[in-house]
Design a protein around this nucleic acid. Structure first.
Length: 295
DNA sequence: CAGAGAATAT
DNA sequence: TATATTCTCT
């Protein structure tokens, strides 16, 4: 692959989304814990600028009664952010539901596509997506649904996975409502996804930059310029080659979504509008990347 | 044990 | 319904 260094770079570069595509993608998920712990740095962000990021209310327990748990839980007032932060916030807090926006899903699909079905497992996908705050569970859950979607799509021949031309047939046959697949249909399904028998070949060779989830630095953001590929050869294999046979295709790199952009939330009860900040409705919060139209 | 994937739960 | 959580198996 080295002799193709320059070559692959071209291809790589070619394949990259344009800056315009990348920028809207540069959102980051901030873990609620983090948000709480740091009391939302609330930089000068802006875009909407308005409405101070309301200090996310402490997790008002209640709800959920899965474990009657012993005794009563006291939510001491002093258990505020400070105390919580000092004590290990992550443990007690509950993450808001993640909303898979088309942009986020796009990343997901890209990751899966470049990893190859074989290596596309939650952990790996998650790492490749490098979205701050995204958990393996988030990905696993989404992947499960996505696979079902693909399965349905496979049953319908003559379909080209396309956002624009969605196959009503597929949906009709599988008795699924169009709305159901809307998200999935928003990103084209790579052809090989639909061919189980076919040995697909793309895997690893993924120079991804692990994003340190340090909450400390929020320097420059917005600028998501394509990271300059270092001249080194990236030797980051994801997973182990089954038989040592490498099949390198286009290198795939993702710019980690840096934090500091903006975080938005949408209330579960179908809030018609788009997100503002963190809004809570009896403790039910939804974390979402702001919708930027479609891709 | 960690983690994938399916089955449930909310 | 969409996403989360739990459970089972690898």
């Amino acid at each position: 692959m080295r002799e193709e260094d320059s070559n692959w770079f071209s291809k790589w570069e070619d394949k990259l989304p344009s800056p315009e595509d990348l920028i809207p993608l540069s959102q980051s998920l901030i873990t609620p814990d983090l948000a709480l712990a740091f009391n939302l740095p609330n930089p000068h962000n802006t875009l909407h600028g308005h409405r101070t990021p309301p200090p996310p209310p402490p997790p008002q327990s209640a709800a959920l009664s899965s474990q009657p748990n012993s005794s009563a839980e006291f939510d001491s007032p002093e258990l505020s952010a400070a105390a919580a932060a000092a004590d290990e916030p992550a443990r007690t807090l509950k993450r808001p539901r993640l909303v898979w926006t088309p942009q986020l899903h796009k990343r997901f699909v890209d990751a899966v596509a470049h990893l190859g079905i074989k290596n596309a497992v939650p952990k790996t996908i998650m790492q490749l997506m490098s979205v701050d705050g995204l958990t393996r569970e988030n990905v696993a859950s989404h992947l499960q649904k996505y696979r079902l979607y693909l399965k349905r799509m496979q049953g319908i021949p003559g379909h080209s996975g396309g956002g624009g031309g969605n196959s009503a047939a597929a949906m009709a046959v599988s008795g699924v409502d169009a709305a159901t697949d809307h998200l999935f249909a928003s990103s084209p399904v790579p052809a090989h996804f639909l061919h189980p028998g076919r040995a697909n070949s793309d895997h690893f060779n993924v120079p991804f930059v692990p994003v340190a989830t340090a909450a400390m630095h929020h320097h420059h953001h917005g600028q998501m310029a394509v990271v300059a590929p270092h001249h080194h050869r990236f030797r980051h294999f994801v997973g182990s080659p089954p038989n040592g046979q490498f099949d390198h295709h286009h290198p795939f790199i993702r710019q980690p979504l840096l934090q500091g952009q903006r975080i938005a939330a949408q209330v579960h009860s179908s809030n018609g509008g788009y997100a503002e900040d963190f809004e809570s409705t009896n403790g039910r919060q939804v974390l979402t990347l702001f919708p930027t139209g479609d891709d």
